Deep mutational scan, measured.
Amino acid sequence: MEVRTIKVFTTVDNINLHTQVVDMSMTYGQQFGPTYLDGADVTKIKPHNSHEGKTFYVLPNDDTLRVEAFEYYHTTDPSFLGRYMSALNHTKKWKYPQVNGLTSIKWADNNCYLATALLTLQQIELKFNPPALQDAYYRARAGEAANFCALILAYCNKTVGELGDVRETMSYLFQHANLDSCKRVLNVVCKTCGQQQTTLKGVEAVMYMGTLSYEQFKKGVQIPCTCGKQATKYLVQQESPFVMMSAPPAQYELKHGTFTCASEYTGNYQCGHYKHITSKETLYCIDGALLTKSSEYKGPITDVFYKENSYTTTIK
């Protein structure tokens, strides 16, 4: 009895394709271990004539594949690729409408935090270190965002349907971005203890939790000093293409032309909904596939993004 075979390709990165001759009487799992086709788990399936010449994702289970996976995804987590594939199996079914010149995501599976993050990423200057993220990001900007969303979920250790947080998501993504040249110098002034300067680099240099107003941050924000008295913390120097200011959701007025974009969060910790506000020729609110415009805006804002380049204080 002759062994019926077909020729397929296996890959971990969709760049390096490895030619395989597979036995049609055995499952993919018996031949390769966990195997995925377009995100779908085909591990328990036997090869079919229609699979001839198709590319299958496999887990990096030998040295060659491990090197290829690390170079593309910059992670050695053995569960990463499987999590990416199972997320992709959902995100490829989502709709990605162009809204006001940006790629958004039609609401499904509690994905409003991903839509808000995706919209924000198209408006701030950011370059990702893992080629996987950078490639998928370019495709997302062009309207094909399924891979990018699935990668975000995998890097953030999230599953489809789980509630997510924009600030946490951005923080994970910033860790995989090139923020080497970003720098922030802060000064804390206390009447009792004097003053202390701190220099922050990388992710810490672009994120701040405690106030939404970048102007206020430049002037000074009140913080408790270690001595128990009130101290003032203010920005001395900022070198970065953008800054992200966050605070627990509270009524906040966004003035046209003073910011790049913002995240609105309605609801409580267990259950809520994100919308995205962007400042173009007027203010726009993007909620999944829905767009509304207004000249002014007041609502429960939790993150505001500002364009920056270089700032030095005039406070002496």
Rank of each mutant, 00 (worst) to 15 (best):
G299I: 01
C227I: 01
P224L: 14
T313D: 13
Q237R: 12
D165G: 07
V203G: 06
L121N: 03
A154G: 05
L37I: 11
L37W: 14
F56K: 04
L88S: 03
V206L: 04
L121K: 04
P47V: 08
Q31E: 09
D13I: 05
D77Y: 03
S263Y: 02
Y214N: 02
T292K: 15
I124T: 03
L163F: 14
G257R: 06
T169G: 00
C112T: 04
F56E: 01
G161N: 07
R66N: 10
Y57S: 08
G267A: 07
G33K: 04
L235C: 07
T64M: 12
P249I: 05
Y297G: 01
T302H: 00
L200T: 11
E68D: 07
S104Y: 03
A136M: 09
R139M: 13
K219R: 13
T232W: 10
E253F: 10
T312V: 15
D135A: 10
H18P: 00
A150K: 02
D303T: 03
D38N: 12
Y172R: 11
P34L: 13
F242A: 00
G228N: 02
P131N: 00
T116E: 03
G220F: 02
Q196F: 14
P249N: 05
F217T: 05
N268D: 15
N187D: 08
S79T: 15
L200R: 07
Q175I: 05
P34A: 12
A289K: 08
K127N: 10
L81Y: 08
K106N: 10
G257N: 09
C149G: 02
W94R: 05
Y265Q: 00
L118F: 11
G82E: 08
N157M: 07
H256Y: 15
Q238S: 01
L59F: 15
S86G: 11
S294C: 14
Q30H: 13
T292E: 15
Q222T: 13
T278Q: 09
T91W: 03
I124W: 00
N100Q: 11
L283M: 12
Q122E: 04
Q175F: 02
S279N: 09
L102F: 09
Y208V: 15
N309S: 09
K307P: 12
E162V: 03
I105K: 04
T314H: 15
T11C: 06
T10K: 13
N89S: 12
K106P: 05
V12N: 12
G194K: 07
T312R: 15
Y57Q: 08
E68V: 05
K191G: 13
A154D: 04
N49A: 12
T278S: 12
Q238I: 01
S181D: 14
S50E: 12
A117E: 04
S263E: 01
E239P: 02
Q30A: 12
A231I: 01
T19G: 12
F80T: 04
F9S: 09
A150F: 02
R66I: 12
F70S: 07
L235N: 01
Y155K: 05
H273T: 02
N111P: 05
N178A: 12
Q251M: 15
C149P: 02
C225K: 01
D135Q: 10
R83A: 09
N111C: 00
V22W: 05
H276T: 04
C156Q: 09
G164I: 00
D165E: 12
S181V: 07
P248C: 09
Q30W: 10
Y36W: 15
S295V: 07
D287T: 03
P34Q: 10
E215W: 06
Y208M: 09
K93A: 08
K316V: 15
T64H: 10
Y138F: 13
R83F: 05
A117R: 04
V3I: 14
S171E: 08
I301L: 07
K280A: 13
K298S: 12
Y284D: 09
R167V: 00
D109H: 07
S104L: 07
Y311V: 08
F80N: 04
C112Y: 03
V189N: 13
L254N: 04
G257K: 06
V42Y: 12
H48C: 11
G164F: 04
C271K: 10
L283P: 00
V221F: 10
Y96A: 03
W94D: 05
S310D: 14
A142C: 15
Q123A: 07
Y265T: 00
L173F: 01
Q216I: 08
P300R: 14
L126Y: 02
E264N: 03
N111L: 03
A289S: 13
G33T: 03
K201C: 11
Q31K: 13
T103R: 06
G228M: 01
C261P: 00
K316H: 15
K93I: 04
A142L: 13
Q197K: 14
N147G: 11
G272R: 01
V189P: 03
L254F: 01
I6R: 07
F305L: 07
S294G: 11
Q31S: 12
L235G: 00
Y252E: 06
T192I: 15
K44Q: 10
D23G: 11
G29Q: 11
R167C: 00
L126M: 09
L212N: 04
H74K: 08
A262V: 00
F56A: 06
P130M: 03
S86E: 15
E71V: 05
V22A: 14
G210F: 05
Y113H: 06
R139W: 10
K307F: 11
L254G: 01
F174L: 11
A262L: 00
F217R: 01
F32D: 06
H18A: 07
V189S: 12
C193P: 03
S50K: 13
T226S: 14
A140C: 13
Y274R: 03
T226I: 11
K233V: 12
Q238W: 03
D13W: 02
T5C: 15
Q30S: 15
D23K: 14
L65D: 07
L235I: 10
K275F: 00
K280W: 08
N147V: 10
I286S: 01
G143F: 00
I277C: 00
G29T: 03
G228W: 01
Y96G: 04
T314W: 14
G228I: 01
Y72S: 10
L186D: 07
T260D: 07
S279I: 01
E144Y: 12
H276P: 01
V236P: 01
F174K: 00
G202I: 02
N61V: 12
G33P: 07
S79I: 14
M26G: 11
M170W: 03
Y28L: 13
T10C: 15
C285V: 13
Q175G: 10
Y306E: 03
Q222F: 10
A145R: 02
V206Y: 02
A247H: 06
K219A: 14
T43A: 14
I15C: 10
N89E: 14
Q237V: 12
L163A: 13
A247V: 04
F305C: 01
Y214E: 00
